[in-house]
Design a protein around this nucleic acid. Structure first.
Length: 497
RNA sequence: GUCCCGUUCGUCUAGCGGCCUAGGACACCGCCCUUUCACGGCGGCGACACGGGUUCGAUUCCCGUACGGGACGCCA
């Protein structure tokens, strides 16, 4: 049997990182088993679905490197089949028409409404099989339908018995029929509902393993009932633990903002491989405990059995800009930036510089070697791709800012430095050839001559050349920036004013 | 309210009865390296929710309690 899995998001907004992780796990399982990974857009809620969201989902998957097989399926296109199936179940007697007038619900307060209604029902002892239309004679039901009376179609859940299934992650699950309401399959306006649509589409697409969030664990029982009513084989299920916010609430855009959106990570300078790696480790761990894993290694080590059962907290600090997302994600991104093959990093840096008008075509041509060397040098202490255009700006442009704290500490603190650095500039002008070794020798000699420590000149020079107090080795900076720029910046009056 | 699920360092997690004085990663702290900041190296801080069983032996198995999460819609 060939494994066929699917990722089935509803296009009602950005791609949530929890959804992205579901997609990842499905993809990994498919690639691991040599199966197919399918993508289905669940756009049956026409009011909320947008094309833009569909695009962002596809872009997001592409960014993460998750390619899907076969044709993209839009669930809305299958609505006629969903309706037909519901009708068939009515004809077969496993579903019935409910002529109860539609109850208008305010979408915002549904959750509270449900709990409230459930409490009330429990108090009154209402059972789920009390719908007056459940046992309406078929003839009468047909007649009223033919007369144009509106109706919803509900599944006729048996009075006694239970559904069971073996969840690959959570183990054996069972639920009494008495706890399951006669779920609505088709709305009175003919619109097919979620549980019906997923099941039919999953049957249609020959899905063998349903891998999705734990929030669907209890829905699964209803779906199994549908599989059975439809006479279809029930697939295997694997539910994933949820990703929670630091306060243990479900992660949501309304409450937690852009930190939950996958595009945020792209836009804020994440390397796709790093984020993919981080996401994979949220709820799953490889056998050997290795944490930095390439796409190939993830596929090699992945197994559904390796998935944990406890929800994971996505640990970010809303009020701390430095920790705007999970520390480990940030660390992993830095790790990728400094250790990945520099040739793979270059295009990402190019995009970043270009977006900030710092890109020059020569970097890919005559200055390719210089560019590679520079990126390789400065990437060592960067966390995101954004750093190349921010902290790294002085390497690509003469128009950079001086950090107040750095100027105070490394320059103004020693008034003689202005003169000393001018002297150093004079010295460097005569050095031949000009490189890291010779500039170092010149600087140290100059320090001896003038009776100051080399460190004083080094730190001062760093701030003059890059505007900051931190960065790579000073002599490598001289080498990278070259004699002309180095000398010019040493003589600059800007930081002194 | 009912049903379901979960609970190991601050966070992500390893652990599937003795290998556990509970291992790793991130974060934090210290030392080394060093012209700075990182990286790297070394070290430190730091957890089995609680109570009962079962067992020669429980982090691991069972029950209960607490806490947390999820589901319960003519949403998906």
């Amino acid at each position: 049997m060939t494994v066929r899995v699917r990722f089935a998001p509803s296009p009602t907004g950005y791609l949530h990182i929890g959804a992205a992780r579901s997609a990842l796990f499905n993809w990994l399982y498919a690639r691991k088993t040599g199966g197919k990974f399918l993508l289905r857009i669940e756009d049956t809620d026409l009011q909320r679905s947008t094309d833009e969201s569909t695009r962002s989902i596809i872009e997001g998957l592409e960014w993460l490197g998750l390619d899907y097989d076969e044709e993209l399926v839009f669930q809305s296109a299958n609505a006629p089949e969903h309706r037909a199936a519901a009708q068939r179940l009515v004809d077969e007697g496993t579903a019935y028409r409910d002529f109860t007038p539609k109850e208008e619900r305010d979408d915002k307060s549904v959750k509270e409404g449900i709990a409230k209604r459930a409490r009330a029902q429990a108090a009154e002892g209402v059972d789920h099989r009390s719908n007056p239309y459940r046992d309406l004679p078929k003839k009468e039901s047909d007649a009223r339908a033919a007369a144009g009376e509106p109706f919803a179609i509900r599944l006729k859940v048996p009075v006694e018995g239970q559904t069971r299934f073996e969840d690959i992650v959570y183990g054996p699950q069972e639920r009494n029929y008495s706890e399951i309401e006669d779920l609505v399959l088709l709305r009175s306006d003919g619109h097919p509902l979620y549980n019906l649509s997923v099941v039919i589409d999953d049957i249609e697409m020959e899905i063998t393993h349903v891998i999705r969030g734990q929030d669907h664990l209890t829905n699964t029982h209803k779906q199994i009932l549908l599989y059975e009513a439809l006479g279809a084989e029930v697939p295997r299920f694997a539910h994933l633990p949820l990703i929670l916010a630091p306060n243990k609430n479900k992660l949501s855009k309304r409450k937690h903002g852009e930190v939950v959106s996958l595009t945020t990570y792209r836009d804020r300078g994440f390397v796709p491989a790093a984020f993919r790696n981080f996401l994979a480790l949220l709820g799953w761990s490889p056998p050997e405990g290795k944490e930095i894993l390439s796409k190939e290694e993830l596929v090699e080590y992945f197994s559904l059995e390796g998935i944990g059962r406890a929800n994971a907290i996505f640990n970010f600090q809303e009020n701390d800009p430095r920790r705007w997302t999970d520390d480990k994600a940030l660390w992993m991104n830095a790790e990728y930036i400094r250790t990945m093959p520099v040739q793979e990093l270059l295009p990402m840096v190019k995009a970043e510089l270009r977006a900030n008008k710092l890109w020059r075509e020569e970097y890919e041509d005559d200055d390719r070697e210089w560019f590679t060397k520079t990126v390789d040098m400065i990437r060592q202490r960067f966390f995101t791709l954004k750093d190349f255009s921010a902290q790294g700006r002085a390497y690509f442009s003469d128009d950079f800012d001086f950090e107040e704290a750095a100027v105070n500490k490394n320059l103004r603190n020693e008034p003689r430095l202005r003169e000393l650095l001018n002297g150093l500039a004079d010295k460097l002008e005569t050095v031949e050839p000009f490189n890291a070794e010779t500039s170092e020798a010149a600087l140290r000699a100059f320090a001896d001559e003038t009776g100051v420590t080399a460190g004083l000149l080094i730190n001062g020079a760093r701030t003059m050349l890059t505007g900051t107090a931190v960065g790579p080795s000073m002599f490598e900076i001289f080498d990278i920036l070259g004699r002309e720029t180095s000398v010019e910046r040493l003589r600059s009056g800007i930081p002194w004013s």
